[in-house]
């Protein structure tokens, strides 16, 4: 159900997420304490390659990490297996990726391109 490949993928994505989570929290605290408005924040993130890569890698890592974790739960508690389990895993990953990319575009895509 969880072979070495999926195990490593989940661990590596966890390693990627750890510093990104800390960075995200740090930015949130900075933004709130500085009294930045939504427009001011978006003015800095939209069109920024750095924030696109920061949150883009976050979205990809979350989609892979969470779908593998849910795969384990679906198998062990609900008995899903085989193709059904693979379809559920891919479905969760695709759903998270879709929602994450939507947010990513809204926050980091250049305004003129939207």
């Amino acid at each position: 159900m969880l072979d070495l490949r999926l195990y490593m993928l989940q661990r590596i994505t966890a390693l990627i997420m750890a510093p990104l989570t800390l960075g995200h929290i740090a930015v949130m605290i900075y933004a709130v304490q500085g009294g930045l408005s939504a427009e001011e924040i978006l003015g800095r993130t939209q069109g920024s390659l750095f924030w696109f890569l920061f949150y883009g890698s976050f979205v990809v890592a979350v989609s892979l990490h969470a779908s593998i974790g849910l795969r384990v739960i679906l198998h062990e508690t609900m008995g899903l297996a085989g193709r059904t389990l693979s379809a559920a895993t891919l479905g969760v990953a695709a759903g998270l990726l879709f929602m994450g990319v939507q947010a990513l575009i809204a926050v980091t895509w250049p305004v003129s391109a939207i």
Binding site: M1, L2, D3, L4, L6, Y7, V72
Partner: peptide, 9 residues
């Protein structure tokens, strides 16, 4: 021990 039923579960 690295297959689908292996130690990683």
């Amino acid at each position: 021990v690295s297959g689908t039923g292996g130690c990683h579960n």
